[in-house]
Design a protein around this nucleic acid. Sequence first.
DNA 1: CTGAAAGCGCTTACAG
DNA 2: CTGAAAGCGCTTACAG
Lengths: 326, 326
Amino acid sequence: MPRVTSADVARESGVSRTTVSYVLNDTTGTVISEETRRRVRAVADRLGYAPSAAARTLRSGRSDLVLCVLPDWPVGPVVDALLDQLTGELAARDLSVLVHHHREHRPLADLWRAVTPRAVVGLAAFSAAEAEGMRRAGIQVIGSVVDPDPRGPDEFAAYQTRVGRLQVQHLAGAGHRALGYATTTDPRLADFAGPRLDGVREECRWLGLPDPPVVPVDVTAEAGLAAVRALRQGPVTAVAAYNDEVALAVLAGARAAGVRVPQEVAVIGVDDVPAAQLAAPPLTTVSQSLELQARFLSASVLAALDGGPEPPRPTDLLRLVVRSSA
Amino acid sequence: MPRVTSADVARESGVSRTTVSYVLNDTTGTVISEETRRRVRAVADRLGYAPSAAARTLRSGRSDLVLCVLPDWPVGPVVDALLDQLTGELAARDLSVLVHHHREHRPLADLWRAVTPRAVVGLAAFSAAEAEGMRRAGIQVIGSVVDPDPRGPDEFAAYQTRVGRLQVQHLAGAGHRALGYATTTDPRLADFAGPRLDGVREECRWLGLPDPPVVPVDVTAEAGLAAVRALRQGPVTAVAAYNDEVALAVLAGARAAGVRVPQEVAVIGVDDVPAAQLAAPPLTTVSQSLELQARFLSASVLAALDGGPEPPRPTDLLRLVVRSSA
DNA sequence: CTGAAAGCGCTTACAG
DNA sequence: CTGAAAGCGCTTACAG
């Protein structure tokens, strides 16, 4: 079963390949009779003709693909949802999103060369050399809100910092004076964990609160228990966690230790994962608006492809979701 | 900055493009002096030559890409991890995995035609027409353990059925006689929810237990509460849930209703998501071995590409993780 | 209004 | 041991 080509369509409809191409691509600036158009389209349909993307890409040097490179850290439902929405938004512009779970298995260059995407969206950070290589190949390189160093070196950190500040603001607003921080043990998350903790510290300083003790917490009940015990050694009455999973572990630890939440210790997370509202007690958390982030990303991609101006960075991406744990 | 082509390398190293191709592809059956090889390679490196994948694909009709199509249902951490591993296993064979979050945005055909993958791995189910189209285009189509109708129409259902049976076996083994089922409200999950419930029913019948009442449960505490109340109308003392998220909602509902778990009602989920062990009480669940599934999938891809025999389906993918909730 | 022809960059029989 | 040439399928000046 050989491939159906535009030559087949041309022969079958009694026109040249040029005409087939014009008709099927709705090329402007050519006048082709309605009659001919109809015939060509009918034949193409009947034959099940589909243009060869490889040939098209070779000829034009560009594809309809947008490559989305995922970072080395565990993505979770938040990023899943973001990808879904990005896929939808770009599909409206006839762009297909392809996601690559990058894990240092092979050089990134092998991938984008093989795919020849129109644009590469990095949810992972690219090295300067990688980004440069892609740009030279005519590929648009787009960072993201969740990407370290998307435009300026400080923008990402500033954003993550605000996550931490917001946690402290809520806790302090509820009257807590002695805070603790439960951070992740996953080294791949250092780019996030660092700035978030910085934000927590800065806000504490700003509010005149003591510098919070920091405890690394695995996502297990045992680690949560150890963390709660360690934190309760001191005067800590509230814990800000790196994310909801860590917060859930702290919650489990408090439960095991017989420490009541939020009466004896308050807990606040980040992300608002599905399990957050089902926790005991329901978890107070900071959610990052996926809709806005996804819309910003797709707008960035489109702007880069159209050569338009960069879309404005979304503001107030962060929202406090107050439940019972803090 | 125009693209560096094999012609550039040929000119620069004083040989023909043929020779360049032979050297760079390590083509067997040709004898080229070590001296020439060295020179060509050096020039290619110096010029930063990278073959055009589009041209190569056009010429050979095949790429080094494996397209992985995700289903219309919410994937979650289980599938994320599976993709990670699959990516790693196939990378060892110089294959790049590309993931597409399929959401009915555009016809699947547009995608695989644009990508020209060597193989398509469906975590979503393909229609017979879609699968046929891909096969005709010379693309290997691989189903998966989690894919409805991978090889035979019954294999997938049988597997899902076993999930339900296992839940009932554990519950009945703990002495429960009156079981209830908490199913998902997400219609996209029907292909999974149906067979799982069938398994629950079959096993109940087999064990001489009454047919379990079924309650659809949103992933919210309120829905969990309503479910627990509805189930407690009758004699139900144990609930099998569609998955961990639903189970977590039931747990939250029991908490809100003041019903003790597992004393008054036992709960068992499916998946063993990270939050399961952190729940109150820690959730007993059925886990599906990702390692085995990923290994099976990559073996299937490789077998299909090499024309080898299909790898044996992994058995005992299911494992009971007993914690405190049941 | 439509067609013949070039060319995108590669691989591979074929012919030295 | 190496090269000239064809051809994968497409789009697009260019010439009617």
